[in-house]
Design a protein around this nucleic acid. Structure first.
Lengths: 186, 186
DNA sequence: CTCATGTGAGACACTGATGTCTCATTCGAA
DNA sequence: TTCGAATGAGACATCAGTGTCTCACATGAG
């Protein structure tokens, strides 16, 4: 557990439990000394930024996997709808590990991460716009809002699972279903 | 601005800008000295808990205004649907001021506040259950999830407004509309 | 075996924030 | 005007966390 990745995983666990976890807490979670943690990461902020970067890496990977640009280039309603579902379910999975990053103020305050977040949000928005153009997503909502709505429901699901109102395995279905068709009886 | 309420309002402003705002920052925001802030609130935690309490007061007030229990006692689809809309729009308004409390870890960590949150969530759930029984809310989603979904969309709207993707005046409509009918084109 | 590398333990200085306290000043009511 | 209460300014001790450093020890490669 003393390698860089082990520290990151331990930090993830510790921070998911307590978002204010100290370097000492991270070291304990990793089963190593605080000195060794500092040998891997100069500062707590550096550690958090790296975790934030990894969470953005996962986000980017999801966008790659789904092939956002290809879908936008040759819009097909069925394919886009399927891609949206895959994407959201993927996010729910990812948020299991990186959920704390959704609301961590240190991570959110990093200018570099915020910039990259913007870039990824832009990429995502391309898919949303295509989805609107083929009638998959509503056109009376701003493209920019879709990403935020997904983000919000991820936070919601994470909290619901945390307090025990929702089973982890149900989270994906609930997020996707309420996101796409809402909670009202049609 | 030196009275208790003035300090609370200033703290609200300061914390909405920077959730980690120190007592010094709060004092500056209130235009008074740090000593006077401490004359009103023994500790930073006490100040945060009071702010959290006030946000729960507002929540409770919204539930009172809407008459949750009366609606549940004599379920009427139209009335319940209207109540839900009023409720959610009210929450969006309230989150303007108390938005920071949605994700503040100190407030969320308070046992007393968490307990009261649970009580209010229970009250709210009564309305949701009634809404399900009269066909206003979907029955294939757990009652417990509705509250979380609203919470998540409040966080989403707050963030969307913060980064400038959504105008404040549009937030209510977007939250309500995406909550009830989803973001997919029907 | 020997040595180099990595690690743990702990000391250390530093920082930012908190909470307490004092004292002079201000302000308002009597 | 006078007196008392509230305030501002600032000193102070305390605390938790951070980041640096040293040294002893273990471990593994040669």
């Amino acid at each position: 557990m003393a390698d860089r990745t082990g520290v990151l995983e331990a930090a993830q666990r510790a921070l998911n439990t307590d978002p204010a976890a100290s370097m000492t807490a991270v070291a304990e979670a990793a089963g190593i000394s605080r000195a060794t943690v500092h040998r891997h990461f100069d500062s707590r902020e550096a550690l958090l930024v790296e975790l934030g970067t990894r969470s953005l890496d996962q986000w980017e990977q999801r966008l790659d996997d789904v092939g956002v640009e290809a879908l936008a280039a040759a819009p097909d309603a069925v394919a886009i709808r399927a891609a949206l579902e895959t994407l959201v379910l993927g996010y729910v999975d990812d948020s299991d590990g990186f959920g704390f990053a959704l609301t961590d103020h240190v991570i959110l305050a990093s200018a570099a991460l915020e910039r990259r977040t913007q870039v990824l949000a832009d990429r995502e928005a391309v898919l949303f716009a295509a989805a609107q153009s083929v009638g998959v997503l509503r056109t009376d909502l701003p493209v920019r809002f879709f990403g935020h709505a997904i983000y919000g429901l991820l936070v919601a699901a994470r909290e619901a699972v945390r307090v025990g109102d929702v089973a982890r395995r149900d989270a994906g279905r609930l997020v996707l279903s309420s996101l796409l068709t809402g909670i009202a009886q049609p």
